[in-house]
């Protein structure tokens, strides 16, 4: 099934959890924040959730800025 991550379509297997997605994206050790379908989630809640087809996910991190 397909979800959208940071504006890009991505195929995932049915039953894929948030933690699995973060591992697949090599973000398991990063300090990130996640929004799922417009709702900001803390990492634990996102990690535990099962993703659904059509989910729109935003994953952000801190970068240099003023």
């Amino acid at each position: 099934m397909t979800i959208v991550v940071n504006g890009r379509q991505r195929d995932i297997t049915a039953g894929c959890t948030g933690v699995k997605l973060l591992e697949d994206l090599d973000l398991a050790a990063e300090r990130i924040a996640v929004e799922r379908n417009g709702e900001v989630m803390n990492r634990q809640t996102f990690a535990a959730c099962t993703l659904a087809a059509g989910d729109v996910i935003e994953i952000v991190r801190f970068v240099g800025g003023g």
Binding site: G7, V60, G64
Partner: peptide
């Protein structure tokens, strides 16, 4: 610091 999308195309330094 600023908040931006993680670059999923390539691993960037944190």
């Amino acid at each position: 610091v600023a908040v931006r999308r993680v670059n999923l195309d390539r691993k960037e330094e944190s």
